[in-house]
Amino acid sequence: MGGKVELLILDEPTNGLDPMGIRKMRELFLKLVKEENMTILISSHILNEIQCIADTIGVMVKGTIVEEVPLETIKNKYPNGLEDYFFNIMDGGQSNA
């Protein structure tokens, strides 16, 4: 069989890693996307890490994706980062962030 992997789904892949391990995983993810044209879906609560590697952000609430947005759009609207965006969504869009 041995076909090419097109989609990789990971749940908290950097949880418990030291900073060097996190950096190596981040580099691996970016390499797989660029060189292997792989799509990687990462579920994580570590927003700062996701901000370093994602190009599209999806937020799930109670098992439903409530929003899916390009990271660049979030950066333009929330210059302080992904955390402000996330809390705005969790506040029902009522946050002044």
Rank of each mutant, 00 (worst) to 15 (best):
I57D: 06
T73A: 13
M25A: 05
L8M: 07
T64K: 15
I50G: 02
M60H: 07
T73S: 13
L41V: 05
E27P: 01
V5Y: 04
H45Q: 07
C52D: 13
N80T: 02
M1C: 10
R23M: 13
Y78P: 08
E83R: 09
I42T: 14
K77I: 04
V5L: 08
L30T: 08
M60S: 10
M25L: 10
I46C: 12
H45N: 07
G16N: 02
G2H: 05
L17W: 02
M90D: 13
I42H: 08
V33D: 00
G92M: 02
G63L: 00
M1N: 12
P79M: 00
N76G: 15
M20I: 14
I9E: 04
F86Y: 15
K24Y: 15
Y85C: 08
E68L: 13
F86Q: 03
D84I: 00
M38Y: 00
G21Q: 00
T73K: 14
E49P: 07
D91P: 06
P70R: 06
I65F: 07
V69R: 11
L7I: 04
T64I: 13
E35R: 03
L30C: 09
L32Q: 01
E35P: 01
L10H: 10
L47Y: 05
E67S: 13
V61K: 09
I89T: 02
K4H: 04
K34V: 03
D91R: 11
G2L: 11
G3H: 14
R23S: 14
I53W: 07
I89N: 02
I9M: 08
E6F: 02
Y78W: 06
N15V: 11
V59L: 12
S44G: 05
Y78L: 08
G58M: 04
S95R: 11
I42V: 15
M25W: 01
K77M: 08
D55C: 14
G93L: 03
E68W: 08
F29Q: 06
V66F: 06
A97V: 08
K62I: 01
Y78C: 05
E12L: 05
G21I: 00
N96A: 15
E83V: 12
R26H: 04
K62E: 11
I53P: 06
T64F: 10
S43I: 14
F87K: 15
K77A: 11
L17Q: 02
K34P: 03
G93S: 01
I74C: 02
D91T: 12
H45L: 09
L30H: 05
L28C: 08
R23F: 11
D11K: 11
F87N: 15
I22V: 15
S43T: 13
N96W: 12
L71C: 04
K4F: 05
I53Q: 09
P70W: 02
L82M: 05
E72W: 03
E72R: 07
P19Y: 04
S43M: 14
Q94E: 10
G16A: 01
F29M: 15
L41I: 12
P13E: 06
N15H: 13
I46T: 08
K24V: 14
C52Y: 09
D11I: 07
S95M: 09
G21R: 00
E49N: 12
N88H: 10
A97Y: 12
I65N: 09
T39W: 00
I40L: 06
D55G: 15
D18S: 03
